[in-house]
């Protein structure tokens, strides 16, 4: 007979965020893509975003977000036994960003790995971390979403240059006496892999990189909009049902910050009533992929401290295509 561990219920203990200091308004983007501030605001809701400095790395941003999350949870890195980093822009295939991060944060013995689930990465991580705590595999898990998308965005691409940005967000997930993270509803639509791509592969650069274009993100806006609004919103509704929570019982809706139009139409599809606060961090942060949900959570709790401890629906979706979502209780006031 094999012995097994058993854990406890799980909860989000704290959230931390980091944004680079450089604010980039639409006016700085528009000339290269022959666009206007009004056009970008109307299509995406984005007014400005943050770009990392050239020497500011994925690890720098992740470290800052983690330190804030740890301090708000009143924990130190010694308390953390597992670190999950969600990113698609750490520019090394191996070793992982997570192992570099634990070395920097001062606990090089923690379990650590990266996940590649693009803009759904944070919710994939929350789901895994919650299950690790519930099964007794881990006690305290740091889940980090971090991206430096400016390294993989073509500033001349009229479909993407105004969307993507940089930043990091982190949560500590730990033990709880009551269930505070609902079941994860996740999956893929891999027949639509082409809708969001980073090509070519590194193999193209092996011998002669002359004439090979850098693997910037390319996106089919209409296809992604349709999938997000009409398929992913159904997954969000399933996450609510799995948690036994009705839309009108939510305090906040914190979806991946891809586009205000997606956020608003998705909320309508799910049946989110006006009483629920809808995160719209995209307006000032742009789309930061895996970082967008924890960043939106952190900024929402700063603007609306009354939402600490409230119920929120999280839903991430992105390249793959992949999605994941869950209902969570927002962390208490630090």
């Amino acid at each position: 007979m094999i012995h097994v561990r058993t854990g406890t219920h799980s909860r989000i203990m704290s959230v931390g965020g980091y944004q680079p200091s450089r604010v980039v308004p639409n006016s700085e983007i528009v000339d290269r893509i022959d666009s206007t501030d009004e056009w970008i605001r109307q299509r995406t809701g984005i007014e400005e975003r943050r770009f990392a400095a050239p020497d500011e790395s994925v690890l720098d941003m992740a470290e800052a977000a983690c330190k804030q999350a740890l301090s708000r949870a009143k924990l130190t890195m010694a308390d953390i036994d597992t670190v999950i980093v969600a990113t698609i822009t750490y520019p090394f295939q191996a070793p992982s960003a997570a192992t570099a991060l634990i070395a920097r944060l001062g606990n090089p013995k923690a379990a650590a790995f990266d996940i590649n689930a693009a803009c759904a990465g944070f919710c994939y991580g929350v789901g895994m971390a919650s299950d690790f705590v519930r099964s007794g595999t881990s006690k305290h898990v740091l889940v980090v979403g971090v991206e430096k998308l400016t390294d993989f965005t073509d500033p001349d691409d009229r479909a993407t240059a105004f969307i993507f940005a940089d930043g990091a967000g982190a949560v500590v997930i730990g033990p709880s006496e009551t269930p505070q993270i609902g079941p994860t509803e996740w999956g893929s639509d891999a027949d639509s892999r082409d809708a969001i791509l980073m090509e070519p592969s590194w193999n193209e650069f092996r011998n002669d990189a002359q004439g090979i274009s850098w693997p910037n993100i390319a996106q089919q806006g209409q296809a992604v909009f349709r999938w997000a609004v009409y398929s992913v919103s159904k997954a969000a509704s399933r996450a609510l049902a799995a948690a036994g929570v009705r839309p009108d019982q939510l305090d906040a809706f914190i979806p991946h910050q891809a586009n205000v139009r997606i956020i608003e139409t998705m909320a309508k599809e799910i049946g989110i009533p006006d009483s629920v606060v809808i995160a719209q961090d995209i307006r000032t942060s742009g789309n930061t992929s895996a970082a967008s949900i924890p960043l939106a959570m952190a900024s929402l709790l700063e603007e609306r401290p009354d939402l600490h401890g409230g119920l929120a629906l999280l839903i991430g979706y992105g390249a793959g295509l992949v999605y994941a979502g869950q209902v969570v209780q927002l962390p208490p006031k630090p």
């Binding site: 209409q222 909009f225 139409t265």
Partner: peptide, 25 residues
Amino acid sequence: DSLSMVEVVVAAEERFGVKIPDDKV
């Protein structure tokens, strides 16, 4: 605009019981 067009297409699919693929939009 291109995103409202997607909403029009999806509503038309439901109303008329047809499929309008992404690459046709």
